[in-house]
Amino acid sequence: MEPSDRTAPRGGAVTTLDRIDLGCRCRVVGIRASGALRKRLFAMGMVPGADVEAIRVAPLGDPVEYRVKGYALSMRRAEAGLIEVVLEEE
């Protein structure tokens, strides 16, 4: 198996997680972060193939809370912008 196989989008335009509307579900296709941040995101379940849903935004517009791998994870838009996703068809 080529490691890069799974990062290929299966359809739908690739965007980043910070642009996802609340209530929308999407699938992670790539992580642009490197080093420690990258490892951290993997450990928290943000891996290629993971289903993510944007749940809520903090009162001041940042950070955003997501549901991934069955739990709630909040992160700043800056970090969410490093996660490439495709919208999931309803």
Partner: peptide
């Protein structure tokens, strides 16, 4: 070798 690719693939395999 692209270690970043391996890292992603291995995390993926675990999940």
């Amino acid at each position: 070798t692209d270690l970043d690719e391996y890292e992603a693939a291995m995390a993926d395999r675990r999940y």
